[in-house]
Design a binder for these strands. Structure first.
Lengths: 207, 207
DNA sequence: AAGTGGTCTAGACCACTGT
DNA sequence: CAGTGGTCTAGACCACTTT
């Protein structure tokens, strides 16, 4: 079971141990996974270490725990609910899959400051971020090529959107257009409107 | 500083201790917060407890840590980056603000199964979820009334969306229209498209 | 009674950054 | 050098569910 891949802390190795069994299909959704005490015996770690591993996997939706009963493999579909789609990097990192990521390409057309300063007005500046990211798992590229594409621009929202956001007629909105790729397929397309006077865009893209 | 509000575990009380100072403005973004050892001395907790509190606040974006240097208040705006907007309940729960939530109203017009079964076709069934949720912090209602409104329907995407998602001309998409409220203001309006044959909608709304 | 998760402690070692 | 975060241990007590 190889607990001695040195670069990783023990609790992360325990997480990977569990994740490996789940991804291989050995432990299926709804099934019980080893208890903390069992992991202590099987993997020669302290209970606090096993606890941290299971707790973090629970927090990220991989496992489900019931005190007094046990720990179970969570339903995978629920964890990837469309409403919870976030940055691919965040998603993978939190599940303990990814460990390192390399930005292959990161382009930017027009400065985001222009967009930010344009928020109060109806300007037409546009900033486009295009990223190509390779994700690694324990330094082996296993995940298929993932991509996120963001187009950010200031727009005059149409009447319906303006009504949804309780915006004035002259107010500009920040529109983020986002496309995500997963396993070679486009996974989502989102139009995210934010009132310009209540939000500002920052350069933190969580890659 | 009152560490003896019994219903909460110690590490959560430490988290609230830190959050209170940040929200009150006493500790401003970029400023250093007490180190683990200082918290040990000031709050009479073990270092592991202080560590868990600071670690979880870091994971949820409230703090930022640099080994060998210190722990700092993270930039608040970055944490609420538009691209990372999630369920309000999740957001608040992860920041340690909310502890309990009451669903005041939860309506559903038309069954979601209809939407699900309609995905393969161009049907016009619509399911609308309307929730009114009151958030509590340590059983005191402090957060302003928050709302999320979801409208879910199957649509025939227009040409642009179809191109973004690499969909065929006859393929239906699942469109989630989402409005979030925060502090009485509408905070975001999102149109989330997902190819019908690659996603399914589940009843888990993370309230 | 035995098992489970939830929490907490008081130590410990380490790598790192600052002075 | 002292301070910091990062981790790990071997115990412990508790409330709970199952047998």
């Amino acid at each position: 079971m190889n607990l001695d891949a040195l670069p990783q802390p023990l609790y992360a190795q325990v997480k990977n141990h569990v994740l490996r069994h789940i991804r291989s299909g050995a432990w299926r959704p709804g099934e019980r996974v080893p208890s903390e005490h069992e992991l202590v015996r099987e993997l020669n770690v302290s209970r606090m270490t096993a606890n941290r591993a299971l707790r973090e996997l629970t927090r990220s939706g991989v496992l489900s725990r019931i005190a007094g009963v046990g720990t179970f493999v969570a339903d995978q579909k629920a964890a990837s609910h469309p409403l919870q789609i976030r940055s691919i990097a965040t998603e993978i990192r939190e599940r303990g899959h990814g460990y390192r990521a390399v930005v292959l390409k990161q382009e930017r057309v027009a400065a985001p400051e222009a967009v930010r300063s344009a928020l109060g007005l109806g300007a037409r500046r546009t900033a486009v971020f295009h990223s190509l990211i390779l994700h690694f798992e324990r330094d082996l590229p296993v995940a298929p090529l993932q991509r996120v594409e963001h187009a950010v621009r200031a727009v005059q929202p149409d009447a319906a959107t303006r009504r949804h956001l309780a915006m004035g007629a002259k107010e500009a909105a920040l529109l983020i257009e986002r496309i995500t790729w997963s396993r070679g397929q486009r996974a989502s397309y989102a139009l995210l409107y934010h009132p310009g006077n209540r939000f500002e865009l920052r350069g933190n893209f969580d890659i």
